[in-house]
Amino acid sequence: MNLKKILIGSQSGGIFLALILMCVLISSLTPRFLTDTNLLVILNQVSVNAILAFGVTFVIISGGIDLSLGSMLAVAGVVAALFAKSDGGNVYMALLMALGVGALMGAMNGFTVILSKVPPFIVTLGTMTIARGAALIISSGRPVSDLSESFNYLGNGDLLGVPIPIIFLVGTYLVCHFVLTQTVFGRYVTAIGGNETAAWVAGIPVAKVKWWVYTLSGIFAALGGILLSARINTGQPNAGLGFELDAIAAVIIGGTSTRGGKGSMTGTLLGVLFIGVINNGLDLLNVSAYWQQVVMGGIIILAVVLDSVYQKMKR
């Protein structure tokens, strides 16, 4: 993908510019920002949010929403930790169980959304609470620690110098981008978000596709949960509080329409990086804790406004 195409051809041009501007601004304020180790740190930090955001991008493009990401992440993180204990745990079993649990919760979301016709906002809000409770029940409310070295390697290890979470980040991006743009499934998801009735009349198996979309979101949340647990070496039942909002914010900042039917994984990746860069920059500049939240919110609003102005100018 060349630069011109991102800037002019795609929906993500505005956010790409905003990201560049942000990087220029921060690096002019501190020399610590534009170093290769710091850039690696940023990528490492955003990996979990990115994976959640990729999953929920499918949901949002299909015209839905998933608020249960953070809670599903916690359940999967705890389950993974329980199966990855240093005494007698098995990493593969842990991965399998956690992803399975994520898929199951996502599938339940999809099932309820399709059958009940209740807005996904409400359904996943319910799941958010249920899953949070489930995480506490499974872990008896305590962090699950003493995890095996091979499990922790997933969060802190590296492969040929590249930290494992970054490999996951790049891998999931490539897969999701491919699925969204090059497959029948991706086309169907976008069509449903664009006009659900017309998609149904055109013979698209709308219910099946929607079910898959929510299931995928659950699986990605679980993957995020596994990485987070591995990164902090514990399965925390209260992990991921509010993560759904970060992920959704990244998707929206990346130019995906909240009404569905339009969006890209590249946009989401840029949105995730944008949030990550601001977080990192605010810490590097040692902005006071109280002000961080104000600045963060202000910048996000500014970015979205700039983007909409940019999109209008393009026409």
Binding site: A191, G194, N195, A198
Partner: peptide, 13 residues
């Protein structure tokens, strides 16, 4: 408008 096509999709799609 409601049942015929996906407005944001291209002619090809």
């Amino acid at each position: 408008k409601e049942m015929g096509f996906i407005p944001e999709f291209s002619v090809q799609h």
